[in-house]
Design a protein around this nucleic acid. Structure first.
Length: 299
RNA sequence: AGGGGUAUGGUGUAAUGGUAACACGUGGGUCUCCAAAACCUUUGUUCUGGGUUCGAGUCCUAGUGCCCCUG
């Protein structure tokens, strides 16, 4: 089984930096596992690595589609598999770095997905119904299936699967031998890092980035749906958020809330994550683990 | 110093004298094809001392803190 090194963690934890350093040391290439960095032009707001950083180590699955395109976990998985296999075939070490828990898991746990594409027409039809109606419909077709009755997206997805002839049961098959490294900070420290990074990106022109996207025809509906930076800054540009102060405060809160959800995901799904002690020497700790994982003579 | 106002969870507010509520925050959780999405859920409050009343966040009184005005 091919080996894959994964670096995960919350937003603003510093995954990209340590990922680049480690990939350089171990003759690696980086696959980004980030649901927003796949879009061209979403740079500052998605926390994308710079062009210069991308030159230090080859990066993959960044800028692979246009804003407004439909891109999902399944697309990511397919492309990630191909990238990883190609990197390994070149005799290099694949490093997957990212904070989108679902994307990471789809590769590390080997989700087996139906090969049918989402049926957008059927989805549009379901969209007309209220959530309770959707739930009733689901219970009729598949009594006893466990989903949050009020979770519209989940209920719709199960209906969609059934419509496709799928049995709606999740399956998986591990495809890679993975070493999971977690980058994490004490809560208060992380909150401070989030605030600092937010301030820094505002100074670097994050608002102008969003204005530019809108001027170039990217729909505000798409941007609002992305959440966090793109949602809140779009609201500011549209005048729904009045001041920069309010924007900074609301967005800061939202990012912290998101970081908490990310941790919930990792706690639940990553039983074998090695959490690096960021207050000591995380690089050395990670290097030792990687060396051990890859085996002697490989580095 | 005098006059007026005000005091409710961490924050902002609500409650004809009759079970103290809401939002935000905080914490926990769900999630295999839009996942930075979409959801579920916990927590905690009447400034202090007296008084009126069957019953006080609410009325009276003293104190204390804060705000405004005057000097």
């Amino acid at each position: 089984m091919e080996k894959l090194i994964v670096i995960l963690g919350t937003t603003a934890a510093g995954k990209s930096d340590i990922g680049i350093r480690l990939a350089q040391k171990f003759n690696g290439e980086i696959i980004s596992a980030d649901s927003r960095q796949v879009f061209r032009g979403l740079d500052l707001g998605s926390g994308k690595v710079t062009k210069e950083e991308q030159e230090m180590v080859p990066h993959h699955l960044i800028d692979v589609c246009n804003p407004g395109d439909f891109y999902s976990m399944a697309d990511f998985q397919k492309q990630a598999y191909r990238c990883i296999d190609e990197i390994a075939a070149r005799g290099k070490v694949p490093f997957m770095v990212g904070g989108t828990g679902l994307y990471v898991d789809s590769v590390t746990e080997g989700y087996q997905l139906s090969d049918k594409m989402p049926d957008l027409a059927y989805r549009a039809e379901l969209e007309k119904l209220t959530t309770p109606e959707l739930y009733d419909m689901l219970m009729e077709k598949l009594p006893g299936h466990e989903v949050d009755a009020s979770n519209r997206n989940r209920v719709m997805r199960v209906l969609e699967k059934l419509h496709d002839g799928d049995d709606a049961l999740p399956k998986k098959q591990q495809r890679y031998d993975c070493l999971l490294l977690g980058v994490n900070w004490e809560r208060e420290v992380l909150k401070q890092r989030i605030d600092e990074r937010l301030e820094r990106r505002f100074q670097m022109g994050m608002v102008d980035e969003i204005k530019g996207l809108i001027d170039n025809g990217v729909s505000t509906e798409f941007l609002l749906g992305l959440g966090l930076e793109y949602r809140y800054i779009t609201q500011y540009v549209l005048g729904e958020i009045a001041t920069m102060e309010e924007l900074t405060e609301e967005l800061g809160k939202a990012i912290k809330r998101f970081a908490r959800r990310q941790m919930t995901w990792f706690r639940r799904h990553g039983q074998n994550i090695h959490w690096l002690d960021m207050t000591k020497d995380p690089d050395a700790e990670a290097e030792a683990l990687i060396r051990d994982f890859l085996g002697e003579g490989d580095c």
